[in-house]
Amino acid sequence: MPQLNPAPWFYTMLTTWLVLSLIIQPKLLSFTSTNPPSHKTLVSTKATPWTWPWT
């Protein structure tokens, strides 16, 4: 079966992986977030129970 032959695709996959990890990833990681996350305190709300009319 020709689709099981890794010879033409292995080098393509290896080249793509190297380009993504060595060239594109550092460029993407250099961007800074425009809205840094803020540390907000969690406000807990007390839920009121539902009153069922048939109970």
Rank of each mutant, 00 (worst) to 15 (best):
Q25P: 00
A7E: 08
T16F: 09
P37R: 13
S21V: 10
T16C: 07
N5Q: 05
L4I: 10
F31L: 14
P37K: 14
L18S: 10
V43P: 00
P6D: 04
L4K: 07
P8Q: 01
Q25S: 06
P49I: 05
T15C: 05
L22M: 09
F31E: 02
T16P: 00
W50K: 12
K40S: 14
S33Y: 09
T32A: 11
P49E: 12
P2D: 15
F31A: 10
S21H: 12
H39C: 07
L4A: 10
P36R: 08
T41L: 12
T15D: 04
N35R: 13
P2V: 14
H39E: 13
T41W: 02
W50F: 15
K46V: 10
M13Y: 03
P37G: 08
I23R: 03
F31G: 06
Q3L: 15
L14C: 00
M13R: 03
L22V: 07
P36C: 11
I23F: 03
P8D: 02
I24Q: 01
W50A: 14
W9C: 03
L29M: 08
L18N: 13
L29Q: 11
T32F: 05
M13T: 01
T32C: 02
T12I: 06
A7H: 03
V19M: 09
N35A: 15
S33G: 11
L4E: 07
Q25M: 07
L4G: 12
S33C: 14
F10L: 08
P8I: 02
K46W: 01
A7L: 10
T16H: 05
W9S: 04
Y11W: 01
I24T: 02
H39R: 11
V19E: 06
H39V: 14
A47E: 06
K27E: 03
F10D: 01
L4C: 11
H39N: 15
N5Y: 07
N5I: 06
T41I: 09
F10C: 00
T41R: 15
N5G: 04
L14A: 05
L28P: 00
M1A: 15
L18A: 14
S21N: 14
S44F: 05
I23L: 07
P36S: 10
L18F: 13
W17I: 09
L20D: 05
M13S: 03
N35G: 04
S38W: 10
T45R: 15
I24A: 06
T48A: 11
L14F: 02
T32M: 04
K46S: 04
L29D: 08
T45Y: 14
N35Q: 11
I24E: 01
P8V: 02
N35I: 14
T12E: 00
P6N: 08
A47D: 06
L42P: 01
F10Q: 09
L20C: 11
N5H: 08
P8H: 02
V43Y: 06
A7N: 07
